[in-house]
Computed example of a mutant assay.
Amino acid sequence: MGRALLVIDMLNDFVEEGGSLYVGEASRNIIPFIKQKIEEFKKEKCPVIFICDSHEKDDREFEMFPPHCISGTWGSMVIKELEPAKEDKVIKKRRYSAFYGTDLDLYLRERGINELYLVGVCTNICVLYTAKDARERGYSVKIYRDGVASFDKSVHEFALQEMKNTLGCELI
């Protein structure tokens, strides 16, 4: 069974205090855990895939949220503590799910990956919708509780339970 780690939206606009959609201290607190998981997956020669919000300047999503992660800007870059290595795959997305409009599914299938481990932000938005789309495509999905965070603790907990109880993801 092939495994991969998906590092979701650990980007300056979400994780750095000056970012346009700063998640808060919760996003900073998960960095050491994510760094440890990246090292573990690399040691086992399992892919580490960085999923990165990357919007156009006039993206329709900005009708709901302030402009953020505009392609090519500081806000759209992975935080310096987790900067991807050359061998890491980086997938840019314009919507919540890492699968929507990207080649993630093809990339995973070509490598025989059928088990995904998720970390990142925001638990109730991009992590949740990536988990949903992964489950609908037949992937086994595991969420590291200590590796995800959101703006609000109650919606974070709701999303974890939704992924577990409705989607059949495993919380580890």
Rank of each mutant, 00 (worst) to 15 (best):
L6A: 11
V7L: 02
I8L: 04
N12I: 11
N12L: 10
E17D: 03
E17L: 09
G18M: 11
L21M: 08
Y22Q: 03
V23N: 12
R28Y: 09
N29F: 09
I30W: 05
P32H: 00
F33D: 10
K35S: 15
E40Q: 11
F41K: 01
K42Y: 06
E44A: 15
P47R: 05
V48E: 01
I51R: 03
D53C: 11
S54T: 02
H55P: 13
D58R: 13
R60P: 11
F62N: 06
M64S: 14
G72T: 01
W74V: 12
S76D: 11
S76K: 12
P84Y: 00
D88G: 00
K89D: 07
I91L: 12
F99G: 08
Y100L: 15
T102D: 02
D105R: 09
Y107S: 05
Y107W: 10
E110S: 07
R111E: 00
R111D: 02
G112H: 01
L116S: 01
C122M: 06
I125G: 02
V127G: 05
V127S: 03
D133K: 03
R135I: 07
Y139T: 09
S140T: 14
V141M: 00
V141T: 00
I143P: 08
G147D: 04
V148M: 03
F151N: 09
K153H: 12
S154E: 14
H156E: 05
F158V: 12
L160Y: 01
Q161A: 14
N165G: 13
T166E: 07
G168T: 02
G168N: 06
E170L: 07
L171T: 04
I172T: 05
